[in-house]
Design a protein around this nucleic acid. Sequence first.
RNA 1: GUGGUCGUAGCUCAAUGGUAGAGCCCUGGAUUGUGGUUCCAGCUGUUGCGGGUUCGAGUCCCGUCGGCCACCCCA
Length: 417
Amino acid sequence: MELQRLPGFRDFYPDDRAWLNYIFDCWRKTATSFGFSEYDGPTLEASDLYRKKSGEELKTQLFRFVDQGDRDVCLRPEMTPTLARLVAAREREFKKPIKWFSIASFFRFEKPQKGRLREFFQVNCDLIGDNSVAADAELISLAVQMLRDFGLTGQDFYVRLNDRRLWSEFLKRRKIDLSRTTEFLNIIDKLEREEKDRTAQKLGTFGLTLDDIQEFLRTPGEQLPGFEDLFRELQWRGVAEYCQLDLTVVRGLDYYSGIVFELFDRGKENRAIAGGGRYDQLISVISDGAVDLTAAGFAIGDVVLRNLLEELNHARAIAQERMTGRGLRGYMVIAAESHRPEAIKLATRLRSAGISIDFPLEPAKVGKQFQAAESLGARYAIVIGQEWPEVRLKDLRKRAETAVPEAELESALKSEN
RNA sequence: GUGGUCGUAGCUCAAUGGUAGAGCCCUGGAUUGUGGUUCCAGCUGUUGCGGGUUCGAGUCCCGUCGGCCACCCCA
């Protein structure tokens, strides 16, 4: 019996790692283009960091243990508390608004299934110290752009947008105890999935009926000042058409205080690709009131995203193209072993110039070497033979071969085509 | 945590309860300086693991560990 991989964890063989790199590169490029700076934090955090902001149920989903120093620690299940800690600790060093992103791995002890594993990666983008609707719009716009950069379109995904304050107002107006907000939002969250009877029964404990809710759902968000401003901001950014108001989107986390949104794929699966919102009180809570900064952010996970990119033909084609573009530039075919020393010196020089080069470590037949070049995905074969110092440069895609003096090889390999 | 379903070669899968196979991949070769095709040969298994029924179990039964899916939960 061989050693097994832990359930919910993945190996990343080169093909898988290429996918991950492609996704990371895309995330990083887009976040940077919006003026966000990359940061990171530790993978392991004190358990208290997560207890401060959440309920008791959390602990079954944490990778939690006591270290050799008798500290109660957790593998991070999300980035936001770490971010809040970082910002709270050195808040005055950074000009506002703080626009940061990170690409990191997270751990949750859950039952693995489609789109949900025990270790996964997320890009987290947060905008801190600005509570304008422009900040909200900026984040939504960034989330949309991040998906568009993978070749996804409005045909593939859309944004479900809501503001929790709409429900807060709703509760206030009906004189319902606001301390039960979380309980209430949980019912709203399940509105589409749970049986109507069950929902009605739960609502009954609030003195509400299903009709009360349905009626409120039909009335758009003009009841909250600022929502029109938000949509105007979204329009300026060209992302309003991706968004639709959906009051049933509330998101599970307690700490969301304003807008919340999720990006869904339009396929029948309808899974959330990304989610986020405004959490104006969290930094204050984490820092025990020392620092009070408004904030909003979102995260995109790698698992659902990759599933989706592989399912959609156009997105998969783009991914394949961008991933193979980074292959080997030249494979050196050493046809004359007597020139191996020169060949290796040449390869070393080309590599120093940033050109990816490989060659056989031991003598091999020329045919074999060409096969190797082919299977390694090399763009060019460089044949080192008796003609040295002249070499033969063969374009493996075009199947065309030319003679090139070795001194000119570098520029020949660098020229685009 | 609950339920369904599936575990056979590295991968994808065959095998009415009766001697475990194919394709792909990989390795080597096809008169020694040219690759996506082709041909030949070779390699690989405690049929996930442990019990049970049977003359005989990959096949039937129980347990267990995994995978997938749904529920729960979702940061």
